[in-house]
């Protein structure tokens, strides 16, 4: 008796369909399997990127090791490759971009979220987004023929006149160099930073503003409360902008002068990691030269990956926590 019941209760056979979809429906299993394959491919591509870049840069890593990052000698003729001038140029041009763009973006985001009436905020938001839709090469073209001459004639002479005692503003004025590259980058990252700050500020619950206003705070003091609440998200936005500035290629390549040397002057020409790759990749005939350039790409990949990961976590935390709070209230 017991035996027959046990036989009847034998578990349903587990086949591939059940492994893929809990419902055991053939269509579901195929559907889910295909989608899973696409998602898996996405992960594999990310992994393949690191592996491919690492393998291809192996000759250079073996030859120069850590010295690659600290040497400022970049001489393809002598097969000497040191990335320091590119790292310097990348960092300085990105910092110039952030110094200009962060206050600007904060102002824009505060204006659009806290102050502007809806009828104004909407079209203006669209226009700022359009700034992000302009291709890099177009910024570069505009940079060469409009911004660089403008800076050379109107801005850089007066900077040198007033602040010429600083090493930053010494040397001949050409309009092509770190400062121009930084300003172009500032224009390019402003729509990105301001869009994320806008999202962060919008995610701060209205109850925070009401509480501040109810305590007798002025409008500006209320905005400060909102800014403090969104601070980690704003930091995330700035880091996201930094990541974009570090990797931006064409526009910078066209206005920064492309000379591998380190100079304190912002008027002097420089070189970034990305522009070195763009400029020299097709010229690299020897394996070691190519490998050194791929290693630059690997550095760029790792740095931007980390920077972006940090930024995402910061922004996610704020927007999720806040929207969680507001829906709970």
């Amino acid at each position: 008796m017991d035996q027959t019941i046990a036989e009847h209760r034998s578990p349903p056979t587990v086949n591939w369909k059940h492994l893929l979809a809990p419902t055991g429906n053939t269509g579901d299993a195929v559907f889910r399997g295909l989608l899973f394959a696409a998602a898996l491919l996405m992960v594999l591509i990310a992994g393949a990127m690191i592996v491919a870049l690492a393998v291809k840069s192996m000759p250079s890593i073996r030859q120069f090791g850590f010295h690659f990052l600290t040497s400022s000698e970049w001489n393809p003729v002598k097969s000497e490759f040191g990335a320091l001038p590119f790292i310097y140029g990348t960092i300085v041009s990105s910092l110039i971009a952030l110094v200009i763009s962060v206050p600007l973006s904060l102002g824009i985001a505060i204006f659009l979220v806290e102050q502007a009436p809806r009828q104004v905020a909407r079209p203006v938001t669209f226009l700022i987004e359009l700034l992000a839709a302009i291709p890099s090469v177009v910024y570069g073209l505009w940079g060469i023929f409009v911004l660089a001459p403008f800076l050379r004639v109107h801005v850089e002479p007066s900077l040198q006149h007033w602040f010429g005692w600083l090493p930053l503003f010494k040397g001949p004025i050409t309009g092509i160099g770190l400062l121009t590259g930084g300003i172009i980058l500032a224009i390019m990252v402003t729509p990105i930073i301001s869009a994320v700050v806008r999202d962060v500020l919008a995610a701060v619950p209205g109850s925070q503003r009401e509480a501040a206003l109810a305590l007798g705070a002025t409008k500006w003091e209320t905005t400060r409360v909102v800014l403090v609440n969104g601070a980690p998200g704003i930091a995330g936005a700035v880091i996201l902008g930094l990541g974009r500035a570090i990797g931006e290629t064409m526009a910078v390549t066209m206005v920064i002068g492309n000379r591998a040397h380190i100079s304190a002057s912002l008027f002097d020409s420089s070189y970034t990691i990305a522009s070195a790759i763009a400029n020299e990749f097709t010229e690299a005939t020897q394996d070691l030269y190519l490998s050194a350039l791929v290693e630059l790409g690997l550095i760029l990949f790792l740095v931007t990956f980390i920077v972006n990961a940090i930024a995402r976590v910061l922004v996610w935390n704020v927007t999720r926590k806040m929207s969680g709070v507001s829906s709970a209230v």
């Binding site: 996405m42 990310a46 990127m49 870049l53 996201l240 990541g243 974009r244 570090i246 990797g247 931006e248 290629t249 990305a274 790759i277 763009a278 790409g297 760029l300 990949f301 931007t304 990956f305 920077v307 972006n308 990961a309 930024a311 995402r312």
Partner: peptide, 9 residues
Amino acid sequence: TLTGIPSIV
């Protein structure tokens, strides 16, 4: 994160 990887890479 891949959205933020520079297109040159």
